[in-house]
Structure formats: structure tokens, C-alpha cells
Amino acid sequence: MEHFRRLGDVPYPELAQSLKDGCLEMSLGPFSKRLKANNSQVTEFLQDAYRDVPVRTKLGDITDVAVTIKSPSWFRQYVRRQVVADPGFIVPAVPLPVRLSALSFEMGLNLAVALKCCRLVSFHAAVVGNEKGAIFISAHSGGGKSTLASALMVEGYRLFSDEFGLLDMSNSLLVPYPRPVSLKGDSINIVRDFTGADWLTPVLSDTPKGDIAYRRARPSDIEEADKKLSSKLIVFPVFTKGARPVAKELAKSEALMRLIPSSTNYHLLGQGGFEALTAMVAGARSYEIQYGNTDDSMKIVKDLAAGVGL
């Protein structure tokens, strides 16, 4: 059986052929994927944004998810070409023009993982961690979690994920899943300024979500993707333009009741999900933070992190 290699070490023709045949196997954190695409934009995006991720070009095992990037119809292969991500089950996916294939791939993969994963409690959240524990940033109010996660990476935190807070039901630990960080609009420039342009993919402009670029996970994030951590700090960021920075501690029961609706699968999981979530909340301190800019949010989160011993 073929061994896993760093995706960046696979020559382009081999990678493209494997994708065309639908037998590229990618392994990252808790999920493996089978990928299929006859599309140079997807191949190039993988080479850039997934450079350090382990893959094999022949399927060595079955996978958690399978995603195919294809034309929405026979007609769209030729005229005003479009692509759509097919996760193998029926979803209301929006066809996108071919130049946005990378976005289609990322959205399709997120959807496949979010809808199919039941082995872990999955939250819409960004998570980073150091050797002492993890910071869980809930996306509840859409308050710039990706920017905050990117900034914390520069401060020495490992990237777990900017899209999925994954909780292991057997031990209530958070599980890394270091996919590329998705940056939108103004945050692209902000993150480029503090991480350097090398770490960002080219910008996809005029997408349905505005401008988008991806910040690649670092080799160290990927190598340590099997190291799970307990959550020490849970934050619910609220961005209000021009607001003065404030942090308000939340009662544990309130934090828990706020986290439930941000989960994509909690309602499916039964008692195991409840036990893991109560343990996670019991072992952490939870805050709602309000802020008006990235510097303020960083300052608050660093103070809170110091307060819980991170």
C-alpha cells in the first residue's frame, strides 16, 4: 500500500491524474477524504493551501467523506463553465463560476464534514491552543473569529481550526482539524500584515461572500493534529464598530445554552454529547467580549488567557 506523502511533494501531473481518477486520499486530523476533480484550479489550490497535508494518490482505505467537484450539468462543462461540490448526498449547493473552484471545494468540504460527522460534537467555532490548553472562540455572533485565530497563531498558539470546534465525546478534549483559515474582506489585509504574504493564497474576488483568501496551516499545526487539548477559555466575540472593549463573564449554564445552537450536530448525539459539553464548560471560564478592532480583541483575549493560566 502506498504511504502518505506531503501534498507539496507530489508532482503536478500525478496529483492531477489522481484527482481526475477520484482516488486522492487526504488525511487531516480526525477526518480522511476521498477527492475527485478534473479541474486545474482545484489542483493548484490544493498545492498551495494544502501544501503540508499528508495525501496518497491511490486510495489506501475508505474515507469519512468523499467530495467531487463537477459541472452542475452537461451544458455547463462548455458554456459559461460552472462547478458545484457534490458530497455524495443531496444538498442545496450553489453552482459557482469555474474561477471560484477553490471556494466551491472549501464550502463543499465544510458541508460534507459538518453534515456527516457524528463521532465528534461539532461547533461553529475557531479553536487555538498551546501546551496548557485551548481557547474556544464561538462564531455565535460572527465576530471575527478567523482574524482572531490568525492573530493568536502569531502569538505562538497552534491552529486547531477556524471553522470547526470539535469535541471528543470520550474525554471531552478538543480535536485539531487544521484546515486553511478562511479570511474575508478587510481581514485579508490585516492578516497579511502580521503573518506575511507567503502564508496567504491569492485573493478570490467578487465571490458571493465578497473577497476571500486562505491562510495556510503551518507544518507544525498539521504535525501536531493528533494532540488533543482541554478547553480552558471559551469566548463569545461580539464585534461592534467603534465599541470600547469589554469582557463579561458568563454563568456556566448560560455558556452551555449558548453553545448548543452553534453546534451542527449536538441534537443528533444523545447523552454523550451532553456529558462532553457539560464537562467542557465546567472545565473552562466563559466570557462574552465586545470590541471594535482586532488589536482590542487580541488584548482582551490575551488578558483572559493569562487569567486562566494559558
Binding site: 443528533l268 448525539l269 444523545g270
Partner: peptide
């Protein structure tokens, strides 16, 4: 299979 079993249990 574990994933499928969780869905069915739900």
C-alpha cells in the same frame, strides 16, 4: 460505521 450507528440511534 460508528458514525452511521449514531445517526440511526438518533
Amino acid at each position: 460505521f460508528e458514525n452511521a450507528a449514531i445517526r440511526t440511534a438518533f
